[in-house]
Design a protein around this nucleic acid. Structure first.
Lengths: 231, 231
DNA sequence: CGAACAATTGATCCTCATCAAACCTTGTGG
DNA sequence: CCACAAGGTTTGATGAGGATCAATTGTTCG
């Protein structure tokens, strides 16, 4: 199935691109499809490409020397990823990108984008806006991790996910898809603790939980947990 | 004391600027001096200026709703700060900047930089490089906080500070200046724990500690603590 | 010298990680 | 269509790592 260049306008960085620029990008890009659990790229690889997710879902993660994972971000359709590597001094990816479902992405040569940016300020501004967003989110999450209790962190993670990719049902409840393990990695805790917290919330009627699935019944209740002063 | 425009070339973002650009920036900029513990700007303020620290030392910090602080970064001479606000959608500062000593900074109107960036790709690239650096550091610190024990985190914090602003003595030891409280906030712990860890290290001869001061006697020993597998 | 502030140290308690075991859910192959 | 395997989830028991609180001891500076 051919990609319509104009669809790329949904990518925030390309929001103000000319039709011609979009065509150029698609022409020189390559579509790449991978299976669930496979990787688009690994932490440390030379960042020759940056990607735009066309279908599926993926996550950005870091692994430390002892093999523990940390989820930095989930990526949904029309989001750009792997762009940081393109700008870095050593031009390597600072994290790995793994597909959560069978996924397809448009791969764009980093140098190509580099070239375009020389003459198109809107691209640079778009990228910078994206980056400031990342920075802000990371700062926020860092602060949370440093100063807040697990329950609140998990609540916030759910709310963030809701904003990023939640599917709203007509009755106002929101369904999210991920394993307890993923949730734990996104919140900086273990799957056991995550499970316990969710169980507790289910008892209180805030959510409904199933295998690889959480339905948020009372978003407002979660907000309360997230905001409530520690006491 | 007048600022020589060419000195601005020490600022990484301005590395490749033309002499004329530098002159322009200095001309339209304003020097601002503040006392110890005062603020250049507060989290949430409209980001009308960005700064280059000319003398002194400052820190970037975030405060959560319960008043707990988290140190994001220390700023030393010729480093740019407050630039993120300039690019953000809502154009507010995502963190506060407080002077650790009497400090002077060059204040540059955000819109002014914006204007320059329209026609000078080197500026955008410089800023992006700066941002990727931040992102990487925050990701790293986030991972540390999520997966590593206090002792290692403190060791890493010291090593980071060493790289950023340590003054090396002829005998290879390195002196750093900060309170236990600051160190704790930078490492995501409490001043008590930080104090204990430092005491322990002092016993082992790795460091020498005093009021608002730590001398690293055996940098290699710290590296070992930081790298050593948990067990 | 004394006040203010930084650091240390001890005692205690609580949150959460860890480990183990059992229980669900889903998909597959006989 | 059932049985079984594989992987996700729950729950309990336990303990360690740090946070917290309180009291004391430096250190600096007016």
């Amino acid at each position: 199935m051919a990609l319509n260049p104009l669809d790329l306008r949904q990518v925030s960085v390309f929001q103000h691109a000319t039709d011609n620029d979009l065509k150029l990008i698609v022409q020189r890009g390559v579509e790449r499809s991978i299976e669930e659990d496979e990787f688009f790229f690994f932490q440390g690889d030379p960042a020759t490409y940056l990607y735009v997710l066309l279908s599926g879902r993926a996550k950005l993660l870091q692994i430390n020397s002892t093999g523990q994972q940390v989820n930095l971000r989930t990526i949904s359709e029309w989001q750009m990823f792997g762009a940081l590597g393109a700008v870095r001094e050593d031009a390597t990816y600072p994290a790995s990108a793994q597909a959560l479902e069978p996924s397809t992405a448009l791969a764009i040569k980093s140098e190509h984008l580099h070239e375009l940016m020389q003459t198109r300020p809107y691209l640079s501004f778009g990228l910078m806006k994206l980056m400031t967003g990342y920075i802000q989110e990371m700062q926020e999450r860092y602060r949370e991790l440093a100063t807040e209790k697990v329950e609140r962190r998990i609540a916030r993670t759910l709310l963030r996910l809701t904003a990023q990719m939640g599917v709203k049902a007509p009755d106002g409840s929101i369904e999210l898809t991920f394993t307890r393990q993923d949730l734990a990695e996104m919140s900086g805790t273990t799957l056991f603790t995550a499970s316990r917290v969710l169980s507790e919330w289910e008892k209180r009627g805030l959510i409904e939980s199933g295998r690889e699935r959480v339905v948020i019944r009372k978003p407002h209740g979660l907000v309360q947990v997230a905001e409530e002063s520690g006491e």
